[in-house]
């Protein structure tokens, strides 16, 4: 990474929102293209943050803080961007823990990992009805629906979402369904018709990249 990006890199790693936004705006006003800032600084920094979390050298709060800085930067430099934020976002994802299941930390880890890997993620929370998940995916124009379930007795609700998506040619074409959670096996995910399965947060990112047609 070029030395000129080091202060911004540090602001992201240390979760300093105001400083990160100020530095990014200063660079854009100085003539840097937002896309350059993202590809040359923000993306590699976030990859590094994700890698450190995967080795548990940093923890969830630090990763969330880094993602928050980047979200604030995206918002702040939007007026300077030609077109839309599409240029700096890899894809759009809705994520939820399915109906009947209240576990959220695993989902939150996956969400943070997806965000630091460049995805825009809308978190619908826990205990979310099937129809509500698909409705949110349509409204966001998401490409991926990511579902979490920790308990065996909530697995049928994961299958409900998959069935709902596959039941219409339009939703089947628009959305890929990524699933994961403590009680879920790769075999179950396949039998339920999921497009992807993540045994843990890293695999969730790898599979998301694959579903989005990106090499990782």
């Amino acid at each position: 990474m070029q030395p000129e990006y080091e202060p911004l890199c540090q602001a992201i790693i240390q979760g300093r929102v105001e400083e990160g936004v100020a530095l990014a705006i200063k660079m854009v006003e100085g003539g840097k293209l937002p896309v350059e800032i993202f590809s040359q600084c923000i993306e590699p920094t976030l990859t590094d943050v994700g890698d450190k979390f995967s080795r548990l050298e940093i923890f969830l709060p630090e990763m969330i803080n880094a993602a928050e800085v980047v979200k604030a930067i995206q918002e702040a430099i939007r007026p300077f961007m030609v077109g839309s934020s599409e240029q700096v976002i890899k894809g759009r994802i809705v994520i939820a823990t399915v109906f009947g299941d209240l576990h959220d930390i695993g989902k939150n880890i996956v969400k943070a990992m997806l965000e630091v890997n460049g995805y825009q993620v809308q978190d619908l929370g826990v205990d979310v009805h099937t129809q509500q998940i698909v409705k949110a995916a349509k409204e966001m124009d998401a490409q991926i629906i990511a579902l979490s379930a920790l308990m065996m007795s909530s697995l049928p609700f994961v299958r409900d979402v998959i069935d709902y998506v596959k039941s219409s040619p339009e939703t089947a074409r628009r959305f890929k369904v990524l699933v994961g959670g403590g009680c879920m096996s790769r075999e179950w995910a396949k039998s339920a018709g999921a497009d992807g399965y993540g045994e843990n947060a890293f695999e969730a990112v790898t599979v998301t990249n694959r579903l989005m047609g990106m090499d990782q």
Partner: peptide, 14 residues
Amino acid sequence: PTLGTIYGFEVRTR
């Protein structure tokens, strides 16, 4: 342990 099924049927919460 947790039963995967009861009487051969999958269990769903609530």
